[in-house]
Amino acid sequence: MKSKYLTACMLLSGMLFHSVTRGQTEVDAIMMNKTQFCAGFMYNYSKWDEYWEGTLKRNNLNLGDVSSQSVMFMANYGITDKLNVMVGAPYVWTKASAGTLKGLDGVQDISLNVKWKPYTKVFGKNKLQLLLVGGVSTPLSDYVIDYLPLSIGLGSTNVTGRLMIDYVHTSRFFATGSAAYVWRSNVKLDRTSYFDTELHSTNEVKMPDAASFQLRTGYRGKYLIAEALLSNWTTLGGFDITRNNMPFPSNKMNSTSAGVNAKYTLKQHTNLSFLGGGGYVIHGRNSGQAFNVNAGIFYALYFNKKLDKNNFNQ
């Protein structure tokens, strides 16, 4: 059953002010078997015209539609059946449809995640798994961060620890819930001083940490996976954008989004998979109300043919 590995390469994207492009693999419960490798590209497009200035919903005629596009390379390798390692890095473009501000583009953050499945319990037709994911991400380039909402990223080095619980029924319906703590490093601006809620005579900005939650459920079949997901990002601290001010990296950026994902693996050629998905921010704070769609293609390599790939998928 090769298809499952490919799901491991999905992405989710673009829900906050900056164009977040997060790997999806570290948020799902799918593991690759030992020595198996898959890699591919995801394209993502996100756009918003309304955003939350603090808790106030508004638009901005001097920005119009703020959009970002990204192409992310991702790779996933099974060190063992229960330990996977993933890397990813996107190139991001931003744009505002109105006003005079120039969009930016560049290589954003590289991320490295290690996913470990220490515990599995089968009872009757049900299976319960516990997964732990640890990740690090850091900017690959010295991109501009103090230019929101058109910066390509926030510039912090993040260390993430995630706990995940996955339930699967033999009918192939599943549900996964996860919670993560994201430790974020301080960032440095190009200017020597800034005002958040007080004046700081330094270029260094203290970035509040964040929490991330996700629920996903759907059908995880042999060739098709279809799921709905609900994601939340909550900044643990930070401040609200003041009236008619610009966003700032250490704002209290929160967002809750709903979305769907699908993945299809070719029956004739199971090395190849296609992915697609979309989402919409249903609630936020200091965040854009983004709509996003994505599509990707992944290719899998099976280095060890002897392995049983037809065991219970997931």
């Binding site: 640890g134 690090v136 301080n186 260094e204």
Partner: peptide
């Protein structure tokens, strides 16, 4: 592997103080 990973990430977190120093 898991132990090494926890150790590395834990060290990064602890090593980086988030206090910022204003120049004045």
């Amino acid at each position: 592997y898991a132990g090494m990973f926890v150790l590395v990430t834990g060290t990064i977190v602890i090593a980086c103080s988030k206090d910022i120093n204003d120049r004045t």
